[in-house]
C-alpha cells in the first residue's frame, strides 16, 4: 500500500515539474549563451583533458587492447558525450577519467593536473543508481560526503537536504530506496553527486535503466540542474549510446570505434537550445551519428 502511494506521488512530481523545467530551460539557454560568450577566453584551459590514453586488458598471458590512443577535451560549460558500439570500452574510459583505474599509457588531466586517484571534485552518476538499500535517501546522499572532514554532521545534512530539494525529492528524505521508483532512485543518485559540489560530473548511461517517459523528464531536469550559472559543475562527461539523447544534450560528441577503441569522430554539436526534437537539423544530427556508429 505504502509502496503504491510513493510511486503515484513520484509520477505526479515528474509530471508537475515538466512545465517548470521547460521554463527553466528557456531562461537557462539565454544565460548559457551569455556565459559561453563571456567564457571564450577561458577556452584555452580544458577542465578535463584525456591525452593519448591506451588501455590493455590482461587476460591470462594475452594482452587485449581496449583503448588505443584516445584523446579528448572538455572545456568549461561543455556537455561532452562519449559514445560507441557496446562493449567498446566507453565505461573503461570513464573509469580512467574518474581516477578509478589507471591507463596502460597516456594521462588524464583535471585542470592541467594529472588524475591518479579518485577525488571528490569529480563525481559520478551511475547507470544502476548504486544506492545503499539500508540507508534512507538522505543517508545515501550523506554517504557521498562521509569523507569530508571539513564539514560538520549538521552541514553535511543541510547540504544533502538542499541537493534532495533541488532534485525534487523534498518530502522523501526518510524513504528507503526500495520504496522509490526507478526515476526517483536516479534522482537520489543525482542529489548525491550534487551534494559533493563537484567541478566535473561523470555520468555512465544515467538514463538507460529508466523507462522512456521517466528518462525524458529526468534528462531535461538534470540538464538544467547541471549547466547553470549557480551550479559549481563546470563540465559534464556522459557515456551513452542513445543517439536521440546525445543530440538532445551534448555540446560535443566523441565517437569511439569497436574494440580496440580509438576516436572515430570528435564533433561539435552546435544546435540552439532548447532543442526541438522534430526539427530538420535534429534529424540530420541523429542520422549522422547513426551512420558513424554503424
Amino acid at each position: 500500500m505504502k509502496q503504491q502511494e510513493v510511486n503515484i506521488s513520484s509520477q505526479e512530481i515528474e509530471f508537475s515539474q515538466t512545465t517548470e523545467v521547460w521554463k527553466a530551460l528557456e531562461i537557462d539557454t539565454a544565460k548559457r549563451q551569455e556565459i559561453t560568450a563571456r567564457g571564450q577566453s577561458d577556452l584555452e584551459i580544458p577542465i578535463i583533458s584525456v591525452e593519448h590514453v591506451s588501455l590493455d586488458y590482461r587476460k591470462e598471458k594475452e594482452q587485449l587492447p581496449v583503448l588505443v590512443d584516445v584523446s579528448l577535451t572538455a572545456y568549461k560549460n561543455e556537455f561532452v558525450t562519449i559514445t560507441g558500439p557496446s562493449g567498446c570500452g566507453k565505461s573503461s574510459l570513464l573509469r580512467i577519467i574518474a581516477g578509478l583505474s589507471k591507463p596502460t599509457s597516456g594521462v588524464v588531466k583535471f585542470k592541467e593536473q594529472p588524475v591518479t586517484k579518485p577525488t571528490t571534485q569529480i563525481a559520478m552518476i551511475f547507470q544502476n543508481f548504486v544506492l545503499l538499500p539500508w540507508r534512507t535517501a538522505l543517508e545515501n546522499v550523506m554517504f557521498g560526503l562521509s569523507s569530508r572532514q571539513d564539514l560538520t554532521e549538521e552541514e553535511k545534512k543541510n547540504r544533502a537536504l538542499k541537493a534532495l530539494d533541488e532534485t525534487g525529492l523534498s518530502g522523501f528524505e526518510n524513504v528507503y530506496p526500495g520504496e522509490l521508483s526507478g526515476g526517483m532512485k536516479q534522482r537520489v543518485g543525482v542529489a548525491r553527486a550534487l551534494a559533493l559540489e563537484p567541478e566535473v560530473l561523470l555520468m555512465d548511461e544515467p538514463f538507460s535503466s529508466l523507462d522512456n517517459l521517466t528518462a525524458e523528464h529526468l534528462r531535461k531536469e538534470i540538464y538544467s540542474l547541471l549547466i547553470n550559472p549557480t551550479s559549481p559543475i563546470q563540465t559534464v562527461l556522459m557515456v551513452s549510446h542513445n543517439v536521440e539523447e546525445i543530440v538532445e544534450l551534448s555540446d560535443k560528441v566523441v565517437v569511439l570505434s569497436a574494440r580496440p577503441a580509438h576516436v572515430v569522430a570528435d564533433l561539435k554539436l552546435d544546435l540552439p537550445r532548447p532543442r526541438n526534437k522534430k526539427s530538420q537539423e535534429f534529424f540530420q544530427w541523429v542520422d549522422k551519428l547513426y551512420s558513424l556508429l554503424a
Partner: peptide
C-alpha cells in the same frame, strides 16, 4: 558487492574504516 559500490566509495574518498562500517558489514 557490485563494483559500482566500491567505485562510489572510492570516489567519495571514504576511509577503509568507513567502508567497513557502512558498506562491508551491512
Amino acid at each position: 558487492i557490485p563494483q559500482d559500490y566500491i567505485d562510489l566509495s572510492s570516489m567519495s574518498n571514504t576511509s577503509t574504516w568507513q567502508r567497513i562500517t557502512s558498506l562491508y558489514i551491512p
